[in-house]
Computed example of a mutant assay.
Amino acid sequence: MFTGMELRHLRYFVTVVAEGNLARAAARLRVAQSALSRQIQDLERELGAPLLARLPRGMQPTEAGRVFLAHAQRALAAADAGAHAVRDVVAGAAGTLRIGTVDWGEHVARIGLAVDCLRARMPAATVTFDPTAWTEQPAAIAAGRMDAGFCPAVRLTDLPSALDGEALAEEPVDRVVLSSTHPLARHEAVTLRELVEVPMLLPERAVYPAMYDHCVAELRRSGREPRVIVAPPSPAASAGLVAAGAGFILGFRSLMRTPPPGTVVLPIRDASITVRLFALRRKDDERPLVRAFLACLRDAYHEQHPHESADESAASWS
C-alpha cells in the first residue's frame, strides 16, 4: 500500500521525464523496469492525476506532469543542497566559527585578514564575533562558549590547561594610563617607584590570575607593596575610572597609541614585562574549521603591511 510521497518517487519521475523512456530510466536508476513502473503508478495514484503519457515512441509528461515536474526538480535540488551542506559540516568545511577579537593596534587589521582568508578557503562557513573582553576569552573558550579567541600572556602556561595556544606577536607592557589631572601626567615618563604611590586598577584575580600576578609583581619591583583596586574586565570601563581619578592601568605599547578621553599615556622607564598575543582554542577541538582559521592567522601575521586605517591603529575604548 502506498503511504506517502518520498524523494525516491520524485527522483524516479524526473529521471523518466529526462530519458523519455521507461527502459532507459530504469537502467540509469539501476532498478528493474517493472519496479520503476509501479513506483510511477503509485505516485500518480497519490496525486490523483496521470503524470506521464505512454506514447509509442516513449513517455512524455501530461499537463499535470509538467506542473509537477518543476516542483519535483526544486524539491530534489533542495534535498541535494541539504545533503551537501551536511557533508561540508562533517568534513569541517562548513558550520559556524565563534571567535573573539582584540581591538587595538595592528591586530584589528590582521584578524580581519585572517577572517577574509577563511571565507575564501571555506565559503560555506559562517564566522560570528563574540564581544567578550580579552581578559575573559580564555575562560569562555575553555567552557565551550567560543571556538577561538585571543589573550596576551607572558607564557602559554599562564593560560588554562584546557587550551592550546599559538603565539602571534609580542610586545612590552611599558605604558601607563593616568588621569590627565594627576600630578604625574605632567611627566614625560614615569618609574615604578612613582607608580606604586598610585592605586593600580586590575580585574579581580579570578578573571586572569597569571596576568594579575605579573602586574602585581612588576609594581613590587619598586620595593613597595602596590595598592590594587578591583576594576571591570572591560578596558573601556577601566579607562573611565582612570579618567575619574581612581588610579592607573598598565597597558601594552600598541594599545596605548591614543589616550582614552580624560587620560594621558606615559612610558614606564623601568618596565620589564613582555607579553605575547596568543591565538587560543580548546585542546580537544580538532575541527578542520578551527584549524583552518589558525592557519589563516599565521598567514595574516606573516604579512608585512596589513591594511590598517587610522581608526584601527588606535585603541578602541568604546
Rank of each mutant, 00 (worst) to 15 (best):
F2E: 01
R8G: 00
R11K: 13
Y12M: 05
V16H: 05
A18I: 00
N21K: 12
L22R: 12
R24N: 10
R24K: 15
A26H: 13
A26I: 07
A27L: 13
A35Y: 11
L36N: 08
G48W: 15
P50G: 07
P50I: 06
P56E: 06
G58W: 08
M59H: 14
T62W: 12
A64L: 06
A64W: 14
R66N: 14
F68G: 01
F68Q: 10
A70M: 08
A83D: 11
H84G: 00
A85Q: 09
V90W: 02
G92M: 13
A93Q: 09
G95N: 12
G95F: 07
L97H: 04
G100S: 05
D103F: 01
G105R: 04
H107E: 02
R110M: 03
A114F: 00
V115I: 09
D116C: 00
L118T: 01
M122L: 15
A125W: 07
A140F: 09
M146H: 07
M146N: 06
D147V: 03
D158Y: 07
D158T: 04
L159S: 03
L159F: 01
L159G: 02
S161V: 14
A167S: 13
V173Y: 00
R175N: 02
E188D: 14
V190F: 03
E194M: 08
E197Y: 01
L201K: 09
R205P: 08
R205Q: 10
A206P: 04
A210M: 09
A210N: 07
A210E: 11
M211N: 14
V216H: 08
E218Y: 05
L219V: 06
R224C: 04
E225W: 01
V228D: 03
A231E: 03
A231D: 12
P232Y: 08
P232L: 09
S234I: 04
A236G: 14
S238L: 06
S238H: 01
F248S: 10
L250T: 05
T258R: 12
P260R: 12
G262E: 08
V265K: 06
L266E: 09
P267K: 11
A271Y: 03
F278R: 06
A279V: 08
L280T: 15
R282L: 06
R282N: 07
K283P: 03
D284C: 09
E286Q: 11
L289Y: 13
R291G: 07
A292S: 10
L294Y: 05
C296P: 00
D299P: 00
H302G: 04
D311R: 10
A315C: 15
W317M: 00
S318H: 13
